[in-house]
Design a protein around this nucleic acid. Structure first.
Lengths: 153, 153
DNA sequence: TTGAGATCAAGAATTATTCTAAATAAAAAT
DNA sequence: ATTTTTATTTAGAATAATTCTTGATCTCAA
């Protein structure tokens, strides 16, 4: 419904996978929503908050923005099981810890060495583009007293 | 539509989270489908194969069986992004490697030490119930020549 | 055998997401 | 400064995986 759009090309602010990425008004709003409260909101939650800043914005646009910015590498999409995707602007390598009680997602700083990856029994000659580490459990706020055991899927 | 059902209670064949788990005809068929071809089929794929063994089985039942058996710990649900869930009967701790070309899923034997987990900056006092490690890339069959670099989400 | 509870089947309902088409806005070209 | 082109936004329809609902069927245990 309206744009400003300074073009951001390869090697500029972000490593966009596309030819160019325009930071339109709507995209800025969506991005700001993610930066304001870093609690991994879903698309619908982003939509509600975005309407506070820009009442006319549509859900479809929020979805568009989130997808575009994800592909551009400005934000990250976080999936836990088959629940609605969540989004975060944390670009550092990190895993996610999902509390199954309060349903909050915590960013966990993570340093998986390439060695570790190599140690796993990957098919010889595989190329790994992306690693996703997600943990589920109960956060201390929700009073997890139990053992810190871990099981792998 | 028909059952046989030897009851399997706590501490028997499986560590069911429920009071008991009955291996009905339908559940056996679904389980056998997963054992026959260990290629991480989706619910619809399981349904198609199950119909080969039991023409009258319904999709809803396949979903029910998959959920029940997942909760019972007989099989595992595998999620890649927001695509349809896939299922596998591999109970050993393992990660998943998803080839974005052939869309196949490979089981990767994995041994994440509790140490490693502890080393991550988890909120003090968290309880971890489950760790999910998913990798995306290109498998050797699909001719991945590139570097074995890795990025973390 | 009879009741209670579990399971199944078929289809409706739900929900997150994607698609479509038309309108609008910005960028590039004239 | 217009015009042309292209990208973006919007609203609503469409999709797809999954869940829910209801009634029938089955199994277990008394």
């Amino acid at each position: 419904m309206s744009q400003s759009s300074p073009t951001v090309s390869e090697g500029n602010l972000t490593h966009s996978g596309f030819g160019d990425f325009r930071m339109t008004k709507q995209r800025k709003v969506v991005y700001d929503v993610l930066m304001d409260e870093r609690d991994h909101p879903t698309a619908s939650e982003v939509f509600l908050r975005a309407k506070g800043k820009m009442p006319g914005i549509s859900l479809a646009t929020v979805y568009n923005c989130l997808e575009t910015m994800t592909h551009a590498g400005l934000i990250k999409q976080v999936n836990v099981d088959r629940e609605a995707s969540r989004y975060c602007p944390n670009l550092r390598p990190h895993a996610h810890f999902y509390c199954s009680e309060c349903r909050q997602i915590f960013d966990i700083d993570l340093r998986l060495k390439a060695d570790a990856v190599a140690a796993w029994a990957l098919p010889e000659g595989s190329r790994i583009d992306h690693i996703d580490v997600a943990m589920k459990g109960v956060c201390p706020n929700c009073g997890a007293e139990g053992p810190k055991t871990s099981s792998h899927s």
